[in-house]
């Protein structure tokens, strides 16, 4: 690819542009094709799918959905559980991460010199490697089958904290906080009514990221939740995989996958501009 450009120095820009478009189209195909098939198959009946693949949607989407909801899997519960866990995690995570970042950003205290690098160092440690202790703690506290161990830990989220801290450095002038103090605003009120609104763009981006990662999380919830009524969507999908899946009506399988994937896609498409910018923003020095 690169060599070709060297020999065709004359063609240069046009050839390269054409090549770029071709590659981008292929990449786009590979990114979207699976979801297209998923959508098509979610609308087709089991019988139609046995007959082979078709590129056009059929009419069985609602039928597949009703079959699924009335089937053996507590899919509707799963949807609600996933939503509750993800929404509460996202809320707590952004609120308290902003608060932590504000503590480091706006105040000067002795331990700051140790705490800030410490948080940056633990940022990369994945939850999996301490899962054993986590599971023991959860059962020790009698919190199995509870959402608390899935929601509360998001208060201490070093990655979100770091993003907020970066954002504050660029767009939260300390003079503003001084001014609020002179006006007699208490520290807590300053945080809630001045800092939080100013952080809105960063909060929105991080809320989405936390929501999505909690929505998609499989490893930890699978270790904590055992009661069928409490399970989140990823666990139900794993169960579907573990079951003798050939017995299943494939229409239902596809609808279930579609309902785990498409809500996130829809939200993403609405907010994609902010998300893609957010990734670039948080990463440059991350």
């Amino acid at each position: 690819m690169e060599k070709k450009q060297e020999t065709n120095k004359g063609l240069g820009i046009h050839a390269r542009r054409a090549l770029a478009y071709v590659v981008l189209c292929i990449v786009t195909f590979f990114c979207l094709f699976w979801f297209y098939v998923l959508f098509i198959n979610a609308t087709r009946s089991n019988g139609e799918m046995q007959a082979g693949f078709s590129a056009l949607p059929s009419t069985h989407l609602i039928e597949n959905w009703t079959n699924l909801v009335h089937g053996s899997q507590p899919i509707f519960n799963g949807l609600i559980n996933s939503f509750v866990v993800a929404a509460l995690s996202a809320t707590l995570c952004v609120y308290f991460s902003t608060m932590t970042a504000y503590a480091i950003h706006a105040y000067d205290f002795k331990l700051k010199r140790f705490i800030y690098p410490f948080i940056l160092m633990i940022m990369m440690i994945p939850t999996q490697v301490t899962a054993l202790g986590f599971v023991k703690l959860v059962s020790g506290l009698g919190l199995e089958d509870s959402f608390i161990p899935l929601i509360v830990p998001s208060i201490a989220a070093p990655v979100t904290f770091f993003y907020m801290k970066q954002y504050m450095e660029s767009s939260l002038p300390l003079s503003l906080i001084e001014a609020a103090r002179i006006d007699g605003s208490g520290e807590f009120r300053t945080f809630n009514s001045i800092v939080l609104p100013l952080m809105k763009p960063a909060i929105a981006v991080q809320a989405i990221f936390t929501f999505v990662s909690s929505w998609n999380n499989y490893f930890i919830p699978a270790l904590v939740l055992h009661d069928d009524k409490k399970k989140t969507l990823p666990i139900l999908i794993a169960q579907l995989r573990a079951a003798d899946w050939l017995k299943f009506d494939m229409g239902q399988v596809y609808v279930m996958i579609a309902f785990s994937i498409f809500p996130v896609i829809v939200v993403y498409l609405i907010l994609s501009k902010h998300i893609v910018q957010g990734v670039a923003l948080g990463s440059v020095k991350g």
Partner: peptide
């Protein structure tokens, strides 16, 4: 937008 999309998909569902 398209190339970032798969990153947000639930890995288990994918």
């Amino acid at each position: 937008t398209v190339i970032y999309l798969p990153n947000l998909i639930m890995a288990s569902a994918f």
